[in-house]
Amino acid sequence: RSRTAFTAQQLEALEKTFQKTHYPDVVMRERLAMCTNLPEARVQVWFKNRRAKFRK
């Protein structure tokens, strides 16, 4: 699988949600996936990586 390049709009939506909660539930992730045209699995991995970045 190749690396996913996120658009500015996708990142904005993801970051906005991350500010609200670092652990979105499956419903919220699926809604984000639909809004951003990304698979739910990519949204889940983005949050996992973003939490790791946040802890540093």
Results as ranks from 00 to 15, higher is better:
residue 1 R to P: 09
residue 1 R to F: 10
residue 2 S to W: 03
residue 3 R to P: 12
residue 4 T to H: 08
residue 5 A to G: 14
residue 5 A to Y: 09
residue 7 T to N: 06
residue 7 T to H: 00
residue 7 T to G: 03
residue 8 A to V: 11
residue 8 A to G: 09
residue 9 Q to H: 11
residue 9 Q to M: 13
residue 9 Q to I: 06
residue 10 Q to F: 00
residue 11 L to K: 10
residue 11 L to V: 10
residue 12 E to A: 06
residue 12 E to M: 02
residue 13 A to D: 09
residue 13 A to L: 13
residue 13 A to K: 09
residue 14 L to F: 06
residue 14 L to I: 03
residue 14 L to A: 01
residue 15 E to G: 05
residue 15 E to P: 00
residue 15 E to R: 01
residue 15 E to N: 03
residue 15 E to Y: 10
residue 17 T to V: 15
residue 17 T to N: 02
residue 17 T to L: 15
residue 18 F to Y: 05
residue 19 Q to L: 11
residue 19 Q to V: 04
residue 19 Q to H: 07
residue 20 K to W: 10
residue 20 K to L: 13
residue 21 T to S: 06
residue 22 H to D: 02
residue 22 H to F: 01
residue 22 H to L: 06
residue 23 Y to H: 07
residue 23 Y to M: 01
residue 23 Y to L: 04
residue 24 P to R: 04
residue 24 P to Y: 04
residue 24 P to M: 02
residue 25 D to E: 09
residue 26 V to C: 14
residue 27 V to Q: 14
residue 27 V to M: 11
residue 27 V to W: 05
residue 28 M to A: 10
residue 28 M to K: 01
residue 29 R to Q: 09
residue 29 R to M: 15
residue 29 R to S: 06
residue 29 R to L: 15
residue 29 R to Y: 13
residue 30 E to D: 10
residue 30 E to I: 00
residue 30 E to P: 07
residue 30 E to M: 08
residue 30 E to T: 07
residue 31 R to D: 07
residue 31 R to C: 08
residue 31 R to W: 09
residue 31 R to N: 11
residue 32 L to W: 03
residue 33 A to P: 00
residue 33 A to C: 08
residue 33 A to R: 01
residue 35 C to P: 03
residue 35 C to D: 15
residue 35 C to R: 14
residue 35 C to Y: 10
residue 36 T to P: 02
residue 39 P to C: 06
residue 39 P to T: 15
residue 40 E to N: 01
residue 41 A to C: 11
residue 41 A to G: 13
residue 42 R to Q: 15
residue 42 R to W: 14
residue 42 R to M: 15
residue 43 V to T: 00
residue 44 Q to P: 05
residue 44 Q to K: 08
residue 46 W to R: 08
residue 46 W to P: 03
residue 46 W to E: 06
residue 46 W to I: 00
residue 47 F to P: 00
residue 47 F to M: 03
residue 47 F to Q: 00
residue 47 F to Y: 07
residue 48 K to E: 15
residue 48 K to Y: 10
residue 49 N to M: 10
residue 49 N to H: 11
residue 51 R to C: 02
residue 51 R to V: 03
residue 53 K to W: 07
residue 53 K to F: 06
residue 53 K to Y: 15
residue 53 K to S: 12
residue 54 F to Y: 12
residue 54 F to C: 06
